[in-house]
């Protein structure tokens, strides 16, 4: 019966049936071409540009191999300061997001009813439906001198932080929060309730349960969430531009070098810095197995 069926099939499909590797190759060639050409090639072109130079008056890129841009970025005090500031902001944003996301995710996964769980997931995802720019500009008006923040805290003697690094941290922490909540929520879902009950039965209080049972199991999920907030902050320049006052991060330097200074090679060299940082971060995170949580 089976031989009869295969005899009737098209020779090409019969060929593909026998040659697994060819079949796989054909299946993957289109997406691989996409990945190779559009993604990797573009990235490679960007990196190669870092070794070129630019004619400062006409603004044309000249193909002359040089390490000047890389040396400038590594040794220039400006770039060192901005790199440190950027990493600092990324770390603070990530810590704030984890601190806010943990209780929310715990409530969603372990306390809320099924119905509330669904509502909360939608609520967490909702900000992602609005444009990034709208949210950043919303924070600009919230943190303004006559904004809602000032209006809220002024009766208590507070004042708005104004535009600057603080405002940038607040806005970025808000923007990336859903990306941190969701992996942690998914991680908590996988922690069996029976473990929490067993811990309670053995006399552990809730803090002890959290520290000794939940946290070790949740650690990879937290790191997975942190990859999002950390890497997204490293590359951001729009929020900083809108609410950051005079401060600039690596993204702003890239932006001004492409836009204002018209120096694509230097911009490429600067963009290598966050790429290097995130590679180091990913390598460190990989050892914890967090990448399988993404």
């Amino acid at each position: 019966m089976t031989s009869e069926t295969s005899a009737r099939t098209h020779p090409a499909s019969a060929f593909l049936h026998r040659h697994v590797r060819v079949r796989l190759g054909l299946l993957l060639s289109a997406p691989l071409l996409w990945l190779g050409l559009v993604y990797i090639a573009a990235l490679a072109a960007l990196l190669i540009t870092a070794f070129w130079t630019v004619d400062t008056f006409t603004g044309q890129v000249r193909i002359e191999w040089t390490l000047d841009n890389i040396v400038t970025v590594i040794s220039g005090s400006l770039y060192q300061a901005v790199t440190l500031r950027t990493v600092g902001v990324a770390v603070v944003v990530t810590l704030i997001d984890i601190a806010v996301a943990l209780p929310i995710a715990f409530f969603m996964a372990k306390v809320a009813s099924k119905r509330w769980q669904r509502i909360l997931v939608i609520a967490v995802l909702m900000p992602l439906w609005a444009s990034y720019l709208v949210k950043a500009y919303a924070w600009r008006s919230v943190l303004s001198q006559d904004g809602i923040f000032a209006w809220l805290v002024e009766p208590f003697g507070g004042s708005t932080p104004g535009y600057g690094l603080h405002a940038a941290v607040i806005t970025l922490a808000y923007l990336w929060l859903p990306y941190v909540i969701l992996p942690i929520y998914a991680g908590l879902e996988r922690v069996p309730d029976s473990l929490l009950e067993a811990s309670g039965d053995l006399g552990a209080n809730s803090w002890r349960t959290f520290r000794s049972v939940v946290l070790p199991l949740l650690w990879p999920a937290i790191l997975a969430g942190s990859i999002f907030s950390f890497s997204l902050t490293l590359g951001d320049y729009i929020t900083v531009n809108i609410v950051g006052g005079t401060s600039q991060l690596l993204g702003n330097l890239v932006y001004t070098n492409v836009g204002a200074a018209n120096n694509l090679p230097l911009a490429s060299a600067i963009s290598l810095v966050p790429i290097a940082i995130i590679f180091v971060y990913l390598a460190a995170v990989r050892r914890t197995g967090a990448l399988s949580n993404l």
């Binding site: 001198q145 006559d146 535009y163 950051g244 005079t246």
Partner: peptide
């Protein structure tokens, strides 16, 4: 720079900042 609140190149941003008093 110590006293600058923000730099502007987008004139709409400048308009808004003067209107809000920032």
């Amino acid at each position: 720079r110590q006293n600058v609140g923000e730099y502007w190149s987008d004139y709409l941003k400048s308009i808004q900042a003067f209107e809000t008093g920032d």
